[in-house]
Structure formats: structure tokens, C-alpha cells
Nucleic acid binder design. Structure first.
Length: 294
DNA sequence: ACCCAGGCGGGCG
DNA sequence: CGCCCGCATGGG
């Protein structure tokens, strides 16, 4: 066995909070391990494990990255945490009123993440009619049960990878159900089979919002909201504005005098207000509504 | 005990 | 079309 050692890299970051990002209920955060004490996140990556420690403050700080291959690890971290996003500039664009400015102030440095499309599809199928704690629980169980084992340089198993759709395509519904997925078991199995045999998620262009959404919604168990989550966090298209119960309530309260509004109206309002950066606005509204109590 | 959770598909009017 | 309902499960 070739000797593998762990390489280290350092990346300077500004306007970045690993804590807020981890707590913001995005695909990576459903199965990664995070330590608040050391401000460190650990997750499987291409047959190995990546470990990221964030030091310094939210304005200026640094990431210490441990991985098997220094360059690949750095590229992964930059891509995954969207480090090329100019967050102050995005804040200017979406900080159009006091409500959202307050959310930004509370969670400054929270990043959207860019996740694997299949990973995003599966986790957000699990998310429907569910809560974050249980999404984590179910996702971790599926990774543990169906993911390929990751070994360290001594040949010792240290983690499981996120399972590809192929690994789940043949899964029995009752096995998936026994992991706590409940009525979503059929959706998970159908989606895994469909994305393995009929729809190549890796060939869908991220920029074509309408076409992408139509393709994703052809998956059983994927509707408007889940499709928007996949477009936003699996393809990185900021035109997606997923409206879940929190965002709906929050926007009705903040922008519609507490009146019930249809999804269409909220959708159009967001598009007018935040244009092509609305995906970021959504993440701050969601996080603030979920944790900040509105 | 009751209510809710990052909704969806199916059925009905 | 739009609306309404049931849905598994665990935590508050």
C-alpha cells in the first residue's frame, strides 16, 4: 500500500463564518461533523477525508485545510464554500431593507455552499415535511449504511462517503424506511434509480434555470421547492428562491403585513426585489426565521 | 397528549 | 388549472 500522508494548506478568508454556514441546514451540513469547540468541520471527499479549521473572526480569518492532496483539497474548499463570492457586494445587493440587513448582521459570513447534485437531490427529498435534526439523522444513517468506506493511510476505516445514486438504486424500500425515512423511502429509491438510469444530473446546465427545474421535477418526490433547493445548492444558480414554511411565514410577516400570500406572489416579489442574487437573500431569511425566531 | 417540521403526489371540483 | 388531503417519524 502506498504511503499516504496528510497535507496541509492555509487559505485566507474574509466575510466567512464556518459556524453560521454549518448551522444553516445545507446538504454538506447534513452529514459532515462539526466541532464548535475547535471550529472545525470534517467530511469525506473522494476516497479520503477533508478537515477544515476556521480561525480568526468573521471579517478576517483563515482556513487550515488538511487533506490527502493539498491542491485538490484547496480547490474543493474554495468551490464548496463559494470563496470566490464577493459577499460584501452581495450584501449590498440584497440588503434592500432593515429586515434583511438585520439578518445579515446576525449571521454575517454565512455562505451558500455548492454541493454535489445527487447529494443535494437526496438530502432535499429527505427534507420534505421534516425537521433539520431528523434530516441529519436520516442522512447520516443512509451514508453509514450505503456509503463506501474511507480508509486512512494505515488501512483503518475512518469514514463513509456519500453514496452515489447507483448504490441506492437497488435498495429495498423497507430497508430505507427502517433508517427512519418513512414515507420518503419510495421517493428515495425511485430517485436513485431514475438518476442512475434515466437522468444524468451531471449533464444538466446550471445556467438554464427553467429547463433545469423542469428536468429536476421529473424526479418522483421532487416538486417546486425541492427543485429550487437543488438548483441553488447543487448547481449554484442564485436565481432559485426556495420557499419553505419558514421563508413563507417570514416574508408574509415582513413584507405583506402578515397576510397569507400564494407562493407565486412571494416568488415574483423576491425576483423583483433581489433579482439574480435572490438565492442568497433566501438563505439569510430562512436562517434568521429558523434560528432567530423571526 | 398535541403540534410541528427546508413538501409532495394524487384526487377532486 | 387550483385546492385539499394524507403521509411516517421523532422532538418540543
Amino acid at each position: 500500500m502506498p504511503e499516504t500522508r496528510v497535507e496541509m494548506a492555509r487559505i485566507d478568508v474574509s466575510t466567512f463564518s464556518l459556524k453560521h454556514t454549518f448551522e444553516s441546514a445545507q446538504p454538506l451540513t447534513f452529514y459532515a461533523d462539526y466541532s464548535e469547540a475547535s471550529n472545525t468541520i470534517t467530511y469525506p471527499f473522494k476516497g479520503s477525508v477533508i478537515n477544515i479549521m476556521h480561525t480568526g473572526g468573521a471579517e478576517k480569518g483563515a482556513l487550515t485545510v488538511l487533506g490527502r492532496d493539498r491542491e485538490k483539497a484547496v480547490a474543493e474548499v474554495k468551490k464548496r464554500f463559494r470563496l470566490d463570492d464577493d459577499l460584501p457586494k452581495i450584501y449590498k445587493r440584497i440588503g434592500t431593507d432593515l429586515h434583511i440587513k438585520r439578518a445579515i448582521a446576525s449571521y454575517r459570513g454565512m455562505r451558500l455552499t455548492l454541493n454535489d447534485p445527487w447529494e443535494t437531490t437526496l438530502t432535499f427529498i429527505i427534507s420534505q415535511f421534516n425537521n433539520v435534526k431528523r434530516i441529519r439523522l436520516i442522512t447520516k444513517k443512509i451514508v453509514e449504511r450505503y456509503g463506501a468506506t474511507v480508509f486512512d493511510s494505515a488501512g483503518k476505516p475512518i469514514a463513509k462517503e456519500f453514496p452515489e445514486s447507483r448504490a441506492l438504486a437497488g435498495a429495498a424500500e423497507k430497508d430505507l424506511q427502517s433508517l427512519g425515512s418513512g414515507f420518503r423511502a419510495k421517493y428515495i429509491r425511485d430517485a436513485a434509480e431514475y438518476c442512475t438510469n434515466n437522468l444524468d444530473l451531471y449533464k444538466l446546465p446550471a445556467a438554464k434555470y427553467d429547463k433545469l427545474k423542469e428536468s429536476l421535477m421529473s424526479i418522483n418526490g421532487v416538486g417546486e421547492k425541492v427543485a429550487d433547493c437543488i438548483i441553488l445548492m447543487g448547481y449554484g444558480n442564485l436565481k432559485a428562491f426556495p420557499i419553505d414554511v419558514h421563508v413563507k411565514r417570514e416574508m408574509e410577516k415582513l413584507y405583506f403585513k402578515g397576510r397569507k400570500k400564494k407562493l407565486r406572489e412571494i416568488q415574483e416579489f423576491a425576483e423583483r426585489k433581489w433579482a439574480n442574487s435572490r438565492g442568497y437573500a433566501q438563505q439569510y431569511l430562512f436562517h434568521n426565521a429558523r434560528l432567530g425566531g423571526g
